[in-house]
């Protein structure tokens, strides 16, 4: 049925997808999130409330790997607010790949002792982000894992959320300035380095979400000195 709307823009497309999903019976938080109207696309960057999120996973495959932890932090009035942050370990991860655990500095005890079920964490994320714009560095992982969860447990094809992607913004910027988008290293730490943002030695989902938030502020400051950029433009860049 989506073919009927081929001519519509991404904005309307997302609005329709959200309306479609709401026809199913969904957990309260999911319904609450999807029933919020999308933020006006002409809203300027300064006035946008962001929720910057990062998942630590055991791998890239949403059907065979697990989410180990989630972290998020809010940006309000262009200030990253560490008072508004969350970090959860996920308790129903099947097994932690030894290498991933080392990279992420997570040991199984942490998860057993402090973890919460994946569904609960996702519901918290959807609740906290219900009236905010989600930001992520490289949306593929976060989006795929959430969509996998939606298909498996909610009976909907995907979670139609609006994602702003700092990795895509970086690619967009490189392409626009005539740079080579293929050879450029666009991993978070590499991009941060190009903006002279501090190198963090420690990593967890929360630190990386703070790191992504700092990157977004830097990207916009450099591209739009007056910060005069609309949500619609940011969303276009993120595709």
């Amino acid at each position: 049925m989506f073919s009927l709307f081929k001519k519509t823009n991404r904005w309307d497309e997302l609005t329709i997808k959200r309306a479609e999903c709401l026809k199913s019976t969904l957990p309260y938080e999911v319904e609450l999130n999807l029933s919020q109207p999308l933020v006006d696309k002409n809203t300027l960057f300064k006035a946008l409330p962001f929720l910057v999120v990062d998942f630590e996973t055991t791998g890239f495959e949403s059907n065979s790997n697990d989410i180990i932890s989630m972290g998020w932090v809010e940006i309000v009035n262009m200030q990253i607010d560490l008072e508004r942050k969350q970090h959860f370990y996920i308790s129903n991860s099947q097994q932690i790949n030894h290498e991933t655990a080392v990279i992420n500095q997570i040991v199984p005890q942490m998860i057993q002792n402090n973890g919460i079920p994946l569904e609960e964490a996702i519901n918290k994320l959807l609740n906290d982000s219900k009236d905010k714009i989600l930001v992520v560095h490289g949306k593929v992982i976060e989006k795929n894992f959430l969509d996998f969860h939606a298909q498996k447990f909610l009976g909907i094809p995907e979670l139609p959320l609006m994602w702003i992607d700092t990795m895509k913004i970086e690619e967009w910027k490189t392409a626009k300035t005539g740079g080579n988008t293929i050879s450029q290293d666009n991993r978070l730490s590499a991009v941060r380095k190009r903006y002279n943002l501090p190198q963090y030695t420690a990593h967890n989902a929360l630190i990386d979400s703070v790191g992504t938030a700092e990157l977004l502020l830097a990207q916009i400051a450099h591209m739009y000195r007056d910060r005069h950029v609309t949500l619609e433009t940011l969303y276009e860049m993120s595709q």
């Binding site: 560490l82 942050k85 938030a213 700092e214 502020l217 830097a218 450099h222």
Partner: peptide, 14 residues
């Protein structure tokens, strides 16, 4: 104290 910090980014000249 750390948990109450806010972070801002200023481009040169701002």
């Amino acid at each position: 104290v750390s948990a109450t910090i806010k972070i801002v980014y200023l481009a040169k000249g701002e």
